[in-house]
Design a binder for these strands. Structure first.
Lengths: 183, 183
DNA sequence: ACAACCATGTAAGTAGTTACATGATTTA
DNA sequence: TAAATCATGTAACTACTTACATGGTTGT
């Protein structure tokens, strides 16, 4: 589970409150490790209990902003975690299941769904390309920035991949059920 | 959640018991929607309760093989589900979090981990390419088979994508911490 | 001072994971 | 007939999701 360490990373980059972190997640790390604000609040509480982060001021809970910053123990934990090997988690791609199902039961209306998906992937690709132009292509490439850029590029390649798959899916789905075509 | 419908699809392709399905999952659909045998047994029980599948013979539970087949209601449910639109689930890629963390705290030993990962992706790519040659490239391309092939191709493209990312990651990670390089 | 919104939090439910248990079947 | 293995199942736990609630703050 990466959420605690994603939060530690975000807090190194800049201290912040739960809501600020939630917002920053939506704009950057969240594209690669999504989290809702409830997850974030819960996890911040755990990180504090573990002694990895510290909340400043405003000690009473509800309604008051709690500013967190990372502690040395948190940096140490993050360093420990980064070099831990984890096997890549197997894919979980619902669309693949739908395509197999379509293959099994014959023409449905999956076509429509894929058109919608394609739009979403196009939007995201545009968003990522904008981020790339703004944050990376025009600035000197330090080691840190190249790593961040690499993460973004992985996202861009993903979106391009799905656009490719969607295009081919649309082509295959319009085949008549009994046709035998050369690929 | 796709597991029940992945199982229904597998049962259309061929009836089978829980353990057989688990094995078949490991070889095909499971590459895109992983499930443990416990999940599969639980889900088969639910599918039976819903009236979507039926277990033949051997009525007592433990130890005895229970052969399942899909019922008409199950086919109907599958058809209903296939055309339901679902937004693509956001990525959850632990390696991306690690790379961001590395960017934040400076050189660690992430290098090693990525070398291991690269091997795993190479293995999987080889496996997929073998499946492709055996099951698709040498057979006539019906609509059904083209759809199944497409799913496999998506997996191949994924693995190739990760090999690309890994290669660039290794390059960037070996940069000295204070260097400013042209990309 | 009232409404709208913001920041934090609680609660309940689902999916998935890990460890283990038990009844049948096969094999030495 | 005992041991190993197979097929199914139970239990406990964690991460995640969704809906909602409460206390502050801001604007009219």
């Amino acid at each position: 589970m990466s959420l605690p360490h994603a939060l530690l990373t975000a807090l190194i980059e800049r201290p912040g409150s739960g809501s600020e972190l939630a917002e920053r997640f939506d704009r950057s790390i969240g594209h690669f490790w999504h989290a809702t604000h409830q997850q974030i609040y819960r996890e911040l509480a755990r990180l504090e209990a573990a002694g990895w982060v510290q909340a400043l001021a405003a000690e009473s809970g509800r309604g008051r902003k709690r500013q967190y910053r990372i502690l040395p123990a948190g940096r140490k934990e993050l360093r420990r975690w980064v070099i831990q090997h984890e096997d890549p988690k197997p894919l979980r791609e619902e669309l693949m299941v739908r395509l197999r199902a379509e293959a099994a039961i014959g023409p449905t209306g999956l076509h429509e769904d894929i058109l919608k998906r394609r739009l979403q992937h196009q939007d995201k690709l545009e968003l990522y390309r904008g981020m790339e132009a703004r944050d990376f292509l025009s600035k000197p490439a330090t080691r840190e920035r190249r790593l961040q850029h690499l993460v973004l590029k992985a996202g861009i390649l993903q979106e391009e991949l799905w656009l490719e798959i969607a295009a081919e899916a649309l082509e295959v789905l319009q085949m008549p059920d009994d046709a035998t075509a050369r690929e």
